[in-house]
Write a protein that binds this DNA or RNA. Structure first.
Lengths: 334, 334
DNA sequence: CTGAAAGCGCTTACAG
DNA sequence: CTGAAAGCGCTTACAG
């Protein structure tokens, strides 16, 4: 029993639309969700009633009744300088077209909000959950799978997938960059990178490949998230001021690479003659810099679109495990 | 009547928690939402039952029953290179602490998805809607207010607010930058800016103030959204190649300013001696550039926190209209 | 401090 | 193609 507390705003319900259109609520529901099973003339009357009342369906009620929330959650660490934006925007467009809504949740630079985020996300009963980080806590993993939501891990290739995967190998990225530097004749490599799991995978790939090619010594400067231009400058400055020597540097992000180049230029170090530089992410400014920045490109749109497809099609069968790869974009800096 | 279609995932309900804890569903609801009105020992039993079952409340049902969705929608054009990220992150943190969830919606570079977005947002019955763009269509405005949700327009000072406003005057920004250039003795101003309503307000302020100071001629290069480094380069190149002359340039975004500086440097134009440059947004790379970039700083965190407060407090009374101002950050470029 | 019961606004299996 | 009715999983006014 409830009292209709001072109704601030009049919100027409489906029942009122039905009354106006002189049909049952059930028929209005059908007309809205599946118009082709409703008679032409009935559809018309209902459309008119919707227009007149300004009716907006209540998806809290709809989702509860149908067990279809039409909601997809995307969990990313942060927005600023995020490498995920392209994927998010592509996925959002695809899902909007299929009448889904995406709910973006921020888990924090170190995923520090993840447990709280997962609970608040699950409370909305999303049909899909897109993960951009690694979920290692077994309790959280279990909570996620028990949901019944479609889980998609993106932008890496986990050893033990939760369910679907659309990503690429960070290890392979490191290998490819090492090879590129080696072909340029570089033998004194430096790594400037954040202390994230994925960056470490790239570093491992890089270091192992360098070793295989006969270069046993790799210098590394690790920086805390978030990566920034200033951080790249600081990293190179610290390295050089301590007597470090390098003829090539793999950065964990284009931002850092940008900073490395600025700092090098200030010191009269020529790019790429004295120092070859590779970024990561192929951020839009990479091609506009002077010198332009070589970087690793990930097709975020492709990942976003593929993820959306999995969600919309809801096809049964075994989970997807898809490596979308990456490409080295060679420009002036390496 | 419904058949429980092949239940893929077991989702415990509040009723099952109640059974386990040997209390009524009503009491579980109270323990979860308002624990201090429930007996200590009862709370304990319920907590234990929640733990055992892995219960996660269904906010679709909760929101429907209580007419409190605990949802706040933020509508932004796009994510990439967005000047809103700081505000979004601050607001998200504040709202999370108050048990709200934010749902981020993308309206597109030209707000082209806005009508569709508004409907899908309203369907979730958010308690608040944060607008970052202008809503001029009277029908959309009406739809928004009729909702009963708290509406907050941010980052500008509209002449006819929908409801609450937390922003600053773009016109005043233009005036301030004009004054800064004028004090530096610059008399041949150039504007490189996107074709957005807000950028136009800054341009108007700039142009009027310049005229007041005796400088009647202002060159303008207008670029389509989104702003980028490459765009800034292209704009300056086009201007100079067509014989344009300028000794200072106000840019619509730090990205563009960055590009302007790169292009100028490539042509041997000294910054700031030959060309003073002002950006907008005080993006994090501004201080790390060489030369460092002067820019206009907006305190996004402050806007985000203030908006969250309005939503959480839900205090009645007249709507807020708050000018948070801005500040010119003077660095090497101007 | 707690319970029984009505109701939130939809959807859908069933029966025509 | 359409309607009557049950049910989705909660909350809350009412009554103790």
């Amino acid at each position: 029993m409830r009292r209709s507390a001072a109704k601030t705003a009049f919100r027409p319900t489906l029942a009122e639309v039905a009354r106006l259109a002189k049909v049952s609520p059930a028929t209005v529901s059908r007309a809205l969700n599946n118009p082709n099973i409703v008679a032409e003339e009935t559809n018309r009357r209902i459309q008119e009633a919707v227009r007149q009342t300004g009716y907006v369906p209540n998806l809290l009620a709809g989702g509860l009744a149908s067990s279809r929330s039409r909601l997809v959650a995307i969990i990313v660490p942060v927005l600023a300088r995020s490498v995920f934006n392209e994927m998010i925007e592509a996925m959002t467009e695809e899902l909007m077209a299929a009448r889904y809504q995406v709910m973006l949740s921020l888990s924090g630079h170190q995923d520090e909000h993840l447990p709280a985020i997962v609970d608040s996300v699950l409370a909305r009963r999303p049909e899909g959950i897109i993960l951009t980080g690694m979920v290692t806590d077994p309790l959280l993993r279990e909570r996620l799978v028990s949901t019944g939501a479609t889980i998609i891990e993106t932008r890496h290739l986990p050893g033990e997938p939760i369910q679907h995967v659309i990503g690429f190998s960070h290890h392979a990225v490191g290998v490819a960059v090492a090879q590129a530097f080696h072909e340029l004749g570089r033998r004194m490599p430096l790594i400037v990178a954040p202390d994230t799991v994925r960056s470490l995978e790239r570093q491992n790939g890089f270091t192992k490949e360098m070793a295989r090619l006969g270069v046993r010594r790799v210098s590394t400067i690790t920086m805390p998230m978030p990566s920034s231009v200033g951080q790249g400058r600081a990293a190179l400055a610290e390295f050089l001021d301590n007597g470090g020597k390098a003829d090539c540097v793999m950065c964990g992000a284009d931002w850092q690479a940008h900073g490395v180049i600025i700092e090098a230029q200030r010191r009269g170090i020529r790019i790429p003659e004295d120092l070859a530089v590779f970024g990561f992410g192929n951020t839009d400014f990479a091609e506009s810099m002077e010198p332009s920045l070589s970087s690793v490109n990930i097709d975020g749109r492709q990942i976003g679109v593929a993820a959306a497809q999995i969600l919309v099609e809801r096809s049964p069968g075994p989970p997807t495990f898809r490596d979308v790869g990456f490409s080295l974009i060679r420009r002036e800096s390496a």
